[in-house]
Amino acid sequence: MFMYQLFKKTKKRSGITLVEIMVGSAILAFIGGIVGHWFFMQRQYQRRIFEISDGQQSIRQTSWAMMQELRTARSVLFPRLNPDNSIHSDSKVVFKSFSGDVICYYYNASQREIRRCKIPNGPGAPEFDPEPIAKDVSQIIFTASDDGNRLIDIFMEIKGSFGLESVYLMNE
């Protein structure tokens, strides 16, 4: 009887036994597995969404950069309507800027980039922007659709997202 009481006293403790930790860990591992799998699936899904979002964002930024310069440009030199007045599309656009120089945005297919260069309207060598305007570009199409050479449509595809913008040249 005395031994039992001693045993009873030693049994009353406030700590956690190894068995409890193991049972708790097993349940946690099970829950963690379910949560982890769900989290992994969500990450995969979000990665796809972000890729589309990144593509759209790149399209917007690229369009914005080109449109700012095109809007105050003076005339589009290339592409222009075909001789039969049908629309003409190309992967580059060349125009006279506000200051009269020739500006070109062109697509480098091997690097999948859009680049800009400035060609002096007069003596002097062309100047190339050190950084591309956009990267990971699948395609870009500039379309001339008016005979006044003042309206340009810009179609772009980046990372599976598409964008279409039109810009009208304001200056003569």
Partner: peptide, 24 residues
């Protein structure tokens, strides 16, 4: 003068440069 710049231009621009110079 404008046609002579063709040597410095990127290869993407070279084929259409004569047409661009004509427009200029």
């Amino acid at each position: 003068e404008m046609q002579a710049k063709s040597d410095w231009l990127p290869e993407e621009l070279v084929p259409d440069w004569p047409e661009i110079v004509d427009n200029l």
